[in-house]
C-alpha cells in the first residue's frame, strides 16, 4: 500500500498541467483526461466529501454526458460509491457526512436550498449493489414510485407504466402472469432487473447503478449488461463496477478513482488501451486492485 502512496506522491510532484484537460486544485493533484465535456447532464466541480473528520473525496471534477454510460472504477474504498451517492444526495441520510463543492444537474445546483431531495431522487434514480425489492408484489414494487409521485391518474395509466417499465427492464415476459406474486420470490437477476424497472418507472433522467451485478451470476450479469446498453438510449447512466471487463463492455466513458481522488477520466476505449496515468495503467493491467 505504501508503494502506491509513494507512487501517487511522486506522480503528483512530477505531473505538469496539460492545457484544458487537467484541473488545477488546492490539493495539488490533477485529473488526467477530459473531465469536462460539452452539454453535460451532470457537472461536478471541486467536490469534497467528508465523513466526520475523515475526507473521503478530494476535489472531484467530472462531467457526465447525456445518454451515455460512464463507468466509475477503482479499488475498494476509493470513493467511487461515495461519489455516486452524492449525485442523488443519498449521502444525506448518513450521519456526519458533509459535501462541499458544486454538483449541477441540468445547470441546477442539487445541493442548493431550492432543491428538494425527493424531486432530485425522482430525477436521478438508483439501483443498489444488492437487489433490494420491497417485500411486496412485483406490481407494487414498480408502481410504488409512480404512486407516491402521482404520475398516474388512474389504474389503467398505472398498469401501462408498470408494463412499459418492466418491458424496458426486460422482465415483462418472465413476470407478466404473476405480477401479484411477491417480488422476493424472484431470482437474484430478476430481482435486480425489477429494481431497475422500479427506478425507471418514475422516468428519471439519470440512473445511478452501484455495482449492480456484484451479487449476480455471469448469465444474469450478461442480461443486465445488455439491458444497460439498451437503456442508454433513454437515460444517462452512471455505473460503479469492480469488473473492468464490465466497464469496458458497457460504458462509453470511464473514470478511475484512487484513494478519494479522480485520477483519470476519458473515453473507455482510450482508457483501456492507452491509459495515461501510471496508477490507471497499474489498475487496469491488474497489478493491484
Amino acid at each position: 500500500m505504501s508503494t502506491i502512496m509513494n507512487t501517487v506522491e511522486e506522480f503528483v510532484e512530477t505531473m505538469e498541467p496539460q492545457g484544458k484537460s487537467v484541473a488545477d486544485s488546492e490539493q495539488g493533484y490533477h485529473t488526467v483526461g477530459e473531465f469536462s465535456i460539452a452539454e453535460p447532464r451532470i457537472s461536478c466541480r471541486h467536490v469534497n466529501v467528508f465523513y466526520g473528520e475523515k475526507q473521503a473525496l478530494f476535489d472531484i471534477n467530472l462531467d457526465i454526458g447525456q445518454r451515455q454510460v460512464i463507468a466509475l472504477i477503482g479499488p475498494s474504498g476509493c470513493g467511487k460509491s461515495t461519489f455516486l451517492r452524492c449525485l442523488n444526495r443519498m449521502n444525506d441520510i448518513i450521519e456526519g457526512c458533509r459535501v462541499e463543492g458544486k454538483i449541477q444537474l441540468d445547470n441546477q445546483d442539487i445541493y442548493s436550498k431550492d432543491m428538494d431531495p425527493v424531486i432530485l431522487r425522482a430525477r436521478v434514480g438508483m439501483v443498489f449493489q444488492k437487489p433490494n425489492p420491497f417485500p411486496k408484489s412485483i406490481y407494487d414494487n414498480v408502481a410504488y414510485g409512480p404512486r407516491i409521485h402521482g404520475l398516474a391518474s388512474n389504474r389503467t395509466e398505472l398498469d401501462e407504466i408498470v408494463e412499459t417499465s418492466l418491458k424496458r427492464a426486460g422482465l415483462w415476459k418472465e413476470v407478466r402472469d404473476r405480477l401479484d406474486h411477491p417480488a422476493t420470490g424472484l431470482s437474484g437477476g430478476q430481482q435486480q432487473r425489477l429494481c431497475i424497472a422500479r427506478a425507471i418507472a418514475v422516468e428519471p433522467e439519470v440512473v445511478l447503478m452501484d455495482e449492480p451485478c456484484s451479487a449476480l451470476d455471469p448469465i444474469a450479469t450478461a442480461t443486465i449488461e445488455q439491458l444497460i446498453d439498451e437503456l442508454r438510449e433513454r437515460y444517462t447512466i452512471v455505473i460503479v463496477t469492480h469488473s473492468m471487463q464490465q466497464a469496458a463492455r458497457v460504458s462509453q466513458r470511464t473514470a478511475y478513482f484512487h484513494l478519494g481522488k479522480l485520477i483519470e477520466v476519458g473515453q473507455t476505449s482510450r482508457i483501456f488501451t492507452n491509459p495515461r496515468h501510471p496508477l490507471t495503467e497499474d489498475y487496469i493491467t491488474g497489478r493491484f486492485g
Binding site: V118, R121, A122, M126, F134, Y144, I148, R198, A201
Partner: peptide, 27 residues
Amino acid sequence: VPPSIREAALGVGASRTQTVFHHVLPL
C-alpha cells in the same frame, strides 16, 4: 428492518415519512 429497504424507498424519491410509513413500519 434492513437499511436496504430504506435506501430503496428513498432512491425512488419517497420522503422520509413515506419511507417510514410505507415500508419500515409494516416490516
